[in-house]
Write a protein that binds this DNA or RNA. Structure first.
Lengths: 337, 337
DNA sequence: CGCAAATGTGTTATCGTTAACACAGCTTAA
DNA sequence: TTAAGCTGTGTTAACGATAACACATTTGCG
């Protein structure tokens, strides 16, 4: 490996002088600078960021920990993070927990050892401990998509409750009363909030009891959606509409519906949280509550970097991004039968 | 920040002794070990991997550079990489070039400064220079999905040519003769190979001239597919089948078809390279040539880590993964009209 | 019993870089 | 003319960790 010492030797100057050229700091004569630059080029010298970081106590690296890298929602967030971070000269280390608090803890440990400057975290259901730990260690971090009850932390998320209210309202407006909600895990706040928004809208429509009866908790997966939908559909009378709290659950529900030959929207309506990326869709069909995933990534990163630069207020920030109800073909009035 | 010195002081031993406890190396009495461990716990000490890496000249970090993080094909690769790497105790830094050689160069530079142990690279069309650079600097790296003509390097990819031959054969078997090929960029080998496979199959069917006339180069994007499809469809007589060299091109083509109200497969057949992940599909519809993206990520990572451990042969390795033709509803015999 | 080997711990130098200080030569202004 | 300041460069110590060596003390075996 070529070090600064090699360059110094080649250029006939001290290491410090080379360092000055690299960092463009202090005084250097044009002649020396040229000699050093030539030596750098000749030797193909690449500065060692490890050594620099050790001195500066700054790695210009942040980490993004998500719970499901296969979900386009998180991929889109990742892209926002990457764009924002790299625009400010930061690298991103990517981690995937699969909703496992153990993996999450494991990753956080490794990342802290690697001295990342900060963390972006989509917390798992069991994140209380690790978030407390991060707070105690004064590690800068920003939560994404979900909060962690019992902790104070920066968070960037959508207003799931309000957005769900509007989505359910859309179904109610169409004339549905038997609406089932397929919720994600009960220890994830975004899932809970969507459940609450559903309850709230139903209650406002005088359907509180219906809502209680037709709420199903499962996981944010296709399989979970499939199973929950089966349960919902077994009920008599059958729901005329299904609200899925995320895209994967909706897809699972769709499969369950197809299996018993229920047509959407003729026999039953289906709406969900999270769009699927336009680029992967042959035919946009689902009525969805769209979140600004890309912006969520960008803003969380911007907030984190602000915090690193002491440019964010002391108190924990909460950034709530708007959502958009996109009405497509999967929602229609209930069958008149 | 708590350092090893703080722990040493607290435990009343030397830094070296603490280091021995952490690394479980050398001799330590049970009593000292207990005291050190207690001190570590009390202080919440986290070893600084930067300092360690500086000594060891090993960061246990690799980087994955892809050209389009929004494409599920690459996301799936990423997941394979992450799983394999983290199983062997490596972290992954993720980068996205958007097919830009400048971004690619930029990222490689930053990553080498950060002393990543190795690179996984989906090379852009203009990667010759950077790959040569990596070779000259003896940086371990493995190419993914594509090769770079004029260089020797490890690569893990599919046999695009053969796979395409089979896909086109499927269309020929159905009775198509006017088949258009929408290829990606001309300086990407996977795109070229797919074009060659198409030419080859057409030639074997005595349709060489057709093939030449109906080949369109564009970019691996929805927009590219849309535009190329429009050109292909403007031709008289119109093609009865379209072969898209990746998933995004297929989606773009689908939009072009829908715009002029052509039904698939009744009016025109459509097949493509790369499946879309099952989890994002409401209704698997496209006939595709599926690549083993997850395995591609895993195997490339395994090869890279082998290389890091001097367990790979000296010569450049080429791992070719099998593909699978999945026949669904988008391909059918040409209209009889 | 005596000496070699095993056990336990500390000291020094080093990884590659830069901050802080030192110093020499040259300019500038009173 | 002279001191203060600018310009250009080098030396030393430090970032946090560990390898290599040094040095006690204990153990084991003929």
């Amino acid at each position: 490996m070529i070090t600064i010492a090699d360059v110094a030797k080649r250029a006939g100057v001290s290491k410090m002088t080379v360092s000055r050229v690299i960092n463009d700091s202090g005084y250097i004569s044009d002649e020396t600078r040229a000699r050093v630059e030539a030596a750098i080029k000749e030797l193909g010298y690449i500065p060692n960021a490890l050594a620099r970081s050790l001195r500066f106590k700054q790695t210009r690296t942040i980490a993004l920990i998500v719970t499901d890298i296969t979900n386009p929602f998180f991929t889109t967030i990742a892209r926002g993070v990457e764009d924002q971070a790299s625009a400010e000269g930061f690298s991103v280390i990517f981690c995937n927990t699969d909703e496992s608090p153990e993996e999450e803890t494991q990753y956080v440990n490794v990342l802290l050892q690697k001295q990342v400057d900060g963390l972006l975290l989509v917390p798992t259901g069991g994140a209380l401990e690790i978030v407390t730990f991060l707070n105690n260690h004064a590690v800068p971090f920003v939560l994404l998509d979900r909060t962690v009850p019992g902790t104070e932390a920066d968070v960037v998320r959508s207003d799931s409750k309000q957005a769900t209210y509007e989505g359910i309202q859309h179904l109610l407006d169409l004339g549905h009363t038997r609406i089932a909600a397929l919720c994600g895990s009960e220890d994830i706040t975004s899932s809970l909030d969507r459940g609450k928004g559903y309850q709230w809208a139903m209650q406002d429509a005088g359907l509180a009891e219906e809502a209680t009866r037709r709420t199903y908790f499962t996981s944010f997966t296709v399989k979970g959606g499939y199973e929950a939908a089966q349960m919902a559909l077994a009920e008599t009378p059958r729901p005329t509409a299904i609200f899925a709290t995320n895209n994967f659950i909706a897809i699972g529900a769709m499969r369950a519906l197809r299996e018993i030959s229920l047509r959407v929207p003729e026999d039953i309506s289906l709406i969900c949280f999270d769009d699927l990326p336009d680029a992967t869709l042959l035919d946009p069909f689902l009525t969805v509550i769209e979140q600004q995933a890309y912006d969520m990534g960008r803003q969380a990163t911007a907030l984190l970097l602000d915090r690193l630069n002491d440019k964010a207020p002391d108190e924990a920030q909460e950034i709530i991004l708007p959502t958009k109800l996109i009405i497509r073909r999967s929602s229609a009035p209930p069958p008149t039968a």
